[in-house]
Structure formats: C-alpha cells, structure tokens
Simulated assay, not measured.
Amino acid sequence: MTDALAKATKTTTAGERETLEAFLDTYRAILRGKLEGLSESDARRSTVPSGTTVGGLVKHLRWVEQGWLQQVLAGIPAEQLPQSPSTPDDLDGDLRMAPEDTVDGLLADYDAQCERSRETAARYDLDDIGRHPRRGDVSLRWIYTHLIEETARHAGHADILREQIDGATGLDV
C-alpha cells in the first residue's frame, strides 16, 4: 500500500483539512501508479474512441493543478506560469502526449506540480477565496473538493485504460 493510501486510512476521524488533503494525495498517488511501469508506447496507447491515454491523463491533471491552485487561488497571472499546451483552438492540448513527452518526464512534472500545489494551498485557509473566470469566487475548500473529484474521475479512467493495456488493476497499479 502506498504512503498516500495508508495516510488516507488514518484520517477517518481527522479534521476537515487533513481529510481533504489526504483524499487528494491518495488519488494523486493512484493516478501516478497507473502511469508508472508503462512503456513509452503503452503510455501513449489509446484503447477507447476518444483517444484518451494514461500519459495524457497525468499530463492533463498537472495543468489542472496549476490552474486551480496557482492561477485561481494564488492569483498568479497565466503569463507568469509555464504555459499549458491547451489553446482556445485546441482545448484538449493538455490531454495529449507530445512527441517529446516521456513517462519519466510526465511523472516528474506531475510530482513537481503537486508539490507546488501543496505549498501554495498551505498558505491559505479553507475559507480563503480565489477568483475563477467562469465560476466566480471559489474557496480553497471548494477547490480541494473539485480537485479530488477530477483526480478520482481521471484515476478511474486511467484504471480502465491500464487494465485494457496490460491487465493490471487495483489501487497500487
């Protein structure tokens, strides 16, 4: 069992913030585990009509983390941050692996972004507000809940893709 999964099982009576952080870290670890151990070609392999890949899901969630915690919560302008491969003409650019993307690179980028996200969130209270261009004011509590939902949803997608690729299933794979 990963450290994140073990931590989540110990938070059943923890406070709100610790519980939210543990759930998010658990699903981050589960998602990460779906990409670990895949070959470069399998990370790019799609087994569904949408073209979704395990590598693409990890890449996408790296940018989701940056958007919600650095841009929305901390208010850092997009032009001061690394630029997402998504554009107004290609909204799904962050879901596709570029030719230069590698499994190790995607994992390192995701890990680094998750650490930046943790550091950013630690400076705020759950009731602190960020401004989203479409949703308006959102609290850190809401951002955590949204990130848990989105990460868990995509971890489920990655679980199905991984099972179709090599038969691996479970929380640690």
Results as ranks from 00 to 15, higher is better:
1 M>F: 11
2 T>R: 11
5 L>H: 12
8 A>V: 13
9 T>V: 15
12 T>L: 15
12 T>R: 15
13 T>V: 14
15 G>T: 08
15 G>A: 08
16 E>Q: 15
16 E>P: 13
17 R>E: 07
18 E>T: 15
19 T>D: 11
27 Y>I: 09
32 R>H: 08
35 L>W: 04
40 E>Q: 10
40 E>W: 05
41 S>Y: 14
42 D>Q: 11
42 D>F: 07
43 A>K: 04
44 R>G: 08
44 R>W: 08
45 R>F: 13
50 S>K: 01
56 G>M: 00
57 L>H: 03
58 V>F: 00
59 K>S: 02
59 K>L: 00
60 H>E: 00
62 R>D: 11
62 R>A: 11
65 E>Q: 09
69 L>H: 04
69 L>E: 01
70 Q>R: 13
70 Q>F: 10
76 I>P: 05
77 P>G: 09
80 Q>Y: 06
82 P>A: 02
82 P>L: 02
88 P>A: 06
89 D>Q: 15
92 D>H: 14
92 D>G: 13
96 R>I: 07
99 P>C: 07
100 E>R: 15
101 D>V: 10
102 T>P: 06
104 D>P: 08
104 D>F: 10
107 L>T: 07
107 L>G: 03
112 A>C: 07
114 C>P: 07
124 Y>C: 06
128 D>H: 12
133 P>Q: 12
136 G>V: 01
136 G>M: 02
136 G>H: 01
139 S>L: 05
140 L>I: 02
141 R>M: 06
146 H>M: 03
147 L>F: 10
149 E>G: 11
150 E>D: 11
151 T>W: 04
153 R>V: 06
155 A>D: 03
155 A>T: 03
155 A>Q: 02
156 G>D: 01
157 H>C: 00
158 A>Q: 03
160 I>R: 10
160 I>V: 12
165 I>R: 06
165 I>A: 00
167 G>Q: 05
169 T>D: 09
170 G>W: 09
170 G>A: 09
